[in-house]
Every structure is written in C-alpha cells, then in structure tokens.
C-alpha cells in the first residue's frame, strides 16, 4: 500500500478542526500566547454549535478584551469599565429570549465592577458571565489586580503584593457561588489542551443553562498574561499551573441539581 501524501490528507472532507466561522478574519491584537484568544474561540465554537448567532448579544469590558467585538461576528456592546453586568441585566430583561453574555477581566469584574457583578448574580439575572482572571491589569501595562497573588510582582507592587499593605486577593468566584441567584459557577483554565477541552464543556453548559432561566451562569477562566508576568508564553502557562492554580483551584463551585 502506497504511503498517503500530505496533499491527500489536506482535503476539505478530512478537516477535523478549524477556526469557528463566528470568529472574524481580523487578527487578534492580544500578545502571543494570551488566553483571551483561546476563550474567544471556545465561546465562538459554542455559539456556532448551538446555532445562537442570531440570538446573541455580548458585552465587552474595558481591559485587554475591550476590542473583542472586532473578533466575533455577533452583535456586541462595549460597556464602561466594570458595568457589563448592568448592561446585560437590562438587555436580558428587555429581551428575555436572547442569549446574553458578558466577557470581563479581573480588574473589570472584581475591582471596579464588584457591585455590578455581585448584584447581578445575587438577583439571579439570567445571563452568562465569562470572567478571565490573569491576576494583573494587562492593557494598562501590568498593574496589580484584585486577583494578584500574595507576593506576586506587578508594576504597582514592584516588590510583590504585600497583603498587609495592599490587601488580599479577592476570590470573587467563591463569593458568587454562595449567592442564591447564581446557578452554575465553575473555575477552569485554558493552559493545556485537556484544560481547554474542559473549559469548553463548562462554557457550553453556561450557555445552554441560560435557557433554563434559573439564574446567573458564571465561568472563571484562570488565564495567563505573559507580557504582564514578563515570561514566555510557555513559561507563563507553567507558572500559572504552579502558582495560580493552588490559590484558584479548578473545578465546579456550584452545579445545578439535576
């Protein structure tokens, strides 16, 4: 039997994976290796698989992912810093048949937007919140975030986060899980292929559950910021596993009773 050639393999009928058509052709502005792109892609795949493009309204935050609307072929609104859950609240209440999500970083969701986050989740708004936690303010150049680990360095804690002086990292996902209005709360990561697969399943659930109208679905993704952490992408993912995950352990924090 003759050996099969690459040209024979690379045929449309043999394609098993390509970027979702919900992603636009615009090149992402993120730094090489940044988890934002991976999460965008997963969300796009879920929207495509569930055929939700025409029902979806997404809210982008202020932070690195502020320009997310350039990358996804869906209707999107750009919120002020921290206010995405307020926008989403109104949209979902005014158009309850739509799929409404927010996409927010740690500064947006867990610092300036803490009130909006907690109250939207506590009211049990039927929205899906994707929370990217990389422990740093990426866009503004690597300042301390509410989720920066103790002793972790950032440009506004250049000698490491001194919790006596700067306060403690906020595990906001744990708080959200205690609220009666949250329905599905989970913490995932996208730093290995296995974790990407799990994260996608979690995002898919968080999207599908919105149809149940039982409350807020909240997915934290522990992610990297290799530029802010000043590491190579590969090293950043290794550092994430060794330092972020012990503090922010992966897994479901709240699952619906079936």
């Amino acid at each position: 039997m003759a050996e099969i050639t690459l040209d024979q393999i690379i045929q449309p009928e043999n394609m098993v994976y390509t970027r979702s058509r919900i992603m636009t052709d615009t090149v992402l502005h993120y730094c090489p290796g940044c988890g934002h792109g991976t999460v965008h892609r997963l969300l796009a795949e879920v929207i495509e698989e569930l055929d939700l493009q025409s029902e979806t309204i997404g809210i982008t935050p202020v932070g690195c992912s502020v320009l997310m609307y350039n990358y996804m072929d869906i209707d999107m609104q750009e919120a002020a810093h921290g206010r995405a859950p307020a926008l989403a609240t109104a949209i979902k209440r005014l158009m309850s048949e739509k799929f409404v999500f927010t996409y927010q970083g740690d500064g947006d969701l867990a610092a300036i937007g803490t009130a909006e986050t907690i109250h939207a989740c506590n009211r049990g708004e039927n929205i899906t919140i994707l929370f990217i936690n990389n422990g740093i303010y990426g866009m503004t150049g690597g300042q301390m975030a509410p989720t920066t680990l103790p002793d972790m360095k950032a440009s506004t804690c250049p000698y490491g986060r001194d919790v006596q002086m700067m306060g403690n990292p906020l595990k906001i996902t744990d708080i959200v899980a205690t609220l009666p209005g949250s329905y599905y709360v989970t913490r995932q990561s996208v730093h290995t292929p296995g974790n990407v697969r799990k994260a996608k399943k979690a995002i898919r659930k968080a999207v599908e559950y919105q149809k149940r109208n039982q409350g807020t679905c909240f997915v934290e993704i522990v992610s990297n910021c290799n530029s802010g952490w000043k590491m190579t992408p590969v090293d950043a993912n290794q550092w994430l596993e060794e330092n972020m995950l012990p503090f922010y352990p992966l897994g479901d924090l709240k699952v619906p009773e079936e």
Binding site: Q77, A80, R83, A86, L87, A90, I91
Partner: peptide
C-alpha cells in the same frame, strides 16, 4: 448600575 442598564 441604573444608567448602565439604560445604556444596555
């Protein structure tokens, strides 16, 4: 939050 609900 109210004004941002209005925005949304």
């Amino acid at each position: 939050a109210a004004i941002n609900m209005v925005y949304g």
